[in-house]
Write a protein that binds this DNA or RNA. Structure first.
Length: 635
RNA sequence: GCCCAGAUAGCUCAGUUGGCAGAGCACGUCCUUGGUAAGGACGAGGUCGCCGGUUCAAAUCCGGUUCUGGGCUCCA
């Protein structure tokens, strides 16, 4: 353990010591250090409140004051059981003891009256714990399994010194100020309305400008890289998603199907129960089952999912993914190997039924638009195409100054059966991803179980202001959907061949990306993205005409500007523009009107003095055209 | 979905033991015509999330429900 982890881990023991003094009947589970502090999971009938937290923290301070020594003791397994029984903590600790493999040492740590099964290590004396604070109470399932009892988790944080603790707490406060939900409301970027629905984003005019600029930006890159733009509808027939495998395997994370009227009327006429109707919705014909299973070479649709044709119910699904629609565009025409790769791109809106407790501002929603594309290529082209996709993601992140991300190669979980396709194809796809990731020049981790159900992927993961990780850009290699949909192209040998698909989205979703972007810039967007780029501030209405004149010129140049004609004094108008995070404020008085000049105040530098308007116009046009990043603010 | 905590004006928040619904900012009108982060006066704005119960009387107490927040679980 690092020294900091020792401090935090020791704090969690002190927390447990104090907790048992206040609530002697608490049953302890585990209390490890974390990246930002520590916690202890406890089972306690009493519902802990904020007041309890204060009480426990006060007791912790006493424990520290008592300067208890942490003493390690290794014991044989039988004795460990005795100790746990003696301290009355058998409910969870016996299970934790059983987790320790045979042959590993079993150790207890004691400080004062408190004894805990623990591998260590710890600081030597409690007085070494100089700066800690309990932060919150949360529910957490025992062993992280939702089938187990939910325990109360007490979160806290600790640092070597009071100064560092104070700095951390201030950082937390700062983080709250740039939370995209708060800024989104203040800067009027988006709205979520109860009557429209949870997790459904309404893009307001200001937010729509940011989204539109991002889409224009990526579209320019797509043209350079030989993509074709397509449009597809928001729904598709269930049959489509039965073929792709989305339905019913991921039924629980989709909106309910929309029944097709005649089909439903017929089922009702047969007095078909709800349960029966759903079973018919999920079922496939024997022919479809044989076709798909034959193509993929193993049983991906089990026999018990078939029903006679006349009993199949049909309907539509709000699309959970864009791939099936794009596949159908590809399949609508014959392709020669000379046509490949075919790259179909769409800002495609998809809908997923996220559990209510998981929704979060713009970053976890139920309807979102992916900057999606599907590449159909030969097996030989896979490596190069994946590289092209990765470079696109890097262009996006670099242009926006987002350098703090990690790369994750998501592989299949060898113990799970949720994946479709042959092991052989999976091996090939995983190899392609791994090799592409190596060329990125950034470190990456390989994580089993993080793959999509149809193939492995390379994800770009960034942290939000409070440390939560969000997957943004993604590139996925897929040997499976082409098989399920029986896609082919004619090769040089005049024989049909199976193409390989690549799914990729450099932003991921417009919603999540904008949410993270708001926090990344703390609302201070680069000029090219700023909803309002220039605020004209006349000192008095005597120069209103000059203001209108400049406004017209700025707008004619394609810039987003407004004129503040309120009767406030200059200071108030400047303040308003600052709070609204407008990059440039142009102050106009009699002198400027006379000289056709403007007094420039930039968000980054403050008052920059008077320059000719024509000169300013060139400067800002240049800044927009190059998509320049904002300069660092003056301190 | 689960645990805990919340919901009062557009925003941030006060509201005592159950007794006429409050402030600041924003907004509107008027006065003020000014030089780089708040000029002044007046005004408008609320079915206290929603439904039900207790009570002479509910923002306040009780039950339910919806939504939000912090976690947990999940995220093809």
């Amino acid at each position: 353990m690092t020294p900091l982890e020792e401090i935090r881990h020791s704090c969690s023991h002190v927390l447990a010591t104090a907790l048992l003094r206040v609530f002697p009947d608490a049953k302890l589970d585990i209390g490890p250090p974390t990246d930002t502090g520590f916690y202890y999971d406890v089972d306690l009938d009493h519902k802990l409140t904020a007041e309890d937290l204060a009480k426990i923290e006060a007791e912790m301070k006493k424990v520290v004051e008592e300067n208890q020594q942490f003493v390690r003791r290794e014991v044989p397994r039988e004795e460990a059981v005795e100790i746990i029984k003696k301290i009355g903590q058998e409910r969870y600790k016996l299970g934790r003891l059983a987790d320790i493999p045979e042959g590993e040492p079993i150790s207890f740590y004691q400080n004062g009256e408190f004894v805990d099964l623990c591998a260590g290590t710890h600081v030597r004396y409690t007085k070494q714990l100089k700066a800690f604070k309990l932060l919150s109470i949360a529910g957490a399932y025992h062993r992280g399994n939702e089938k187990n009892k939910q325990l109360q988790r007490i979160y806290g944080t600790a640092f070597p010194t009071k100064d560092e603790l104070q700095q951390y707490l201030e950082r937390l406060e700062q983080a709250k100020l740039r939370d995209h939900r708060k800024l989104g409301r203040e800067l009027k970027l988006f709205h979520i309305d109860d009557d429209v629905g949870q997790g459904l984003i309404l893009w307001t005019p200001a937010g729509s400008i940011i989204r539109q600029e991002l889409q224009t930006f990526i579209s320019e890159e797509l043209r350079k890289q030989g993509y074709s733009q397509v449009f597809t509808p928001h729904i598709g027939k269930l049959t489509l998603y039965k073929t792709s495998g989305h339905f019913p395997y991921y039924k629980e994370s989709q909106f309910s199907p929309i029944f097709e009227n005649e089909s439903l009327a017929k089922a009702i006429g047969e007095n078909c129960s709800c349960a029966e109707a759903f079973s018919r919705l999920e079922a496939v014909s024997e022919k479809m089952r044989q076709d798909i299973n034959g193509r993929v070479g193993r049983e991906v649709i089990p026999a018990d999912r078939t029903k006679p044709d006349d009993q199949l119910l049909d309907g539509f699904l709000l699309k959970p993914m864009n791939c099936p629609h794009h596949i159908k565009i590809f399949a609508s025409q014959p392709h020669s190997y000379r046509d490949l790769p075919v790259r179909l791109a769409e800002f495609g809106t998809v809908y997923r039924w996220e559990q209510s407790g998981e929704l979060n501002g713009m970053t976890r929603v139920r309807g979102f638009t992916q900057d999606d594309a599907h590449l159909f290529c030969t097996e030989e082209q896979v490596g190069q195409e994946v590289l092209g996709c990765l470079s696109l993601v890097k262009i996006v992140l670099t242009t926006l100054g987002m350098h703090d991300y990690r790369v994750r190669v998501g592989l299949r979980d060898p113990d799970s059966n949720k994946y479709t396709g042959s092991a052989e194809n999976w091996d090939k796809a995983e190899k392609a991803c791994r090799e592409a990731a190596k060329t990125l020049g950034v470190s990456f981790t390989e994580e089993p179980g993080e793959a999509a159900f149809y193939g492995p992927k390379i994800d770009f993961v960034v942290k939000d202001v409070i440390g939560r990780e969000w997957q943004l850009g993604t590139v996925q290699v897929d040997y499976n959907l082409p098989t399920r949909f029986d896609l082919s192209y004619i090769g040089a040998d005049n024989q049909p061949h199976r193409p390989v698909m690549i799914h990729r989205a450099p932003f991921g979703s417009m919603e999540r990306f904008c949410g993270v972007l708001i926090e990344h810039f703390a609302g201070d967007f680069p000029v090219w993205l700023a909803p309002e780029q220039i605020r004209l501030v006349p000192i008095s209405d005597k120069v209103a005409d000059y203001g209108h004149n400049l406004l017209a010129q700025l707008r004619a140049a394609g810039l987003r500007a407004s004129l503040d004609e309120h009767s406030d004094k200059l200071g108030a108008k400047v303040r308003r523009a600052e709070l609204e995070k407008v990059p440039y404020t142009l102050v106009l008085g009699a002198k400027e009107a006379e000289a056709q000049s403007v007094s420039v105040r930039s968000r980054a530098k403050g008052d920059e003095g008077v320059i000719p308007f024509a000169q300013y116009l060139e400067r800002v046009k240049q800044e927009v055209a190059t998509r320049a990043l904002p300069e660092k603010k003056k301190a």
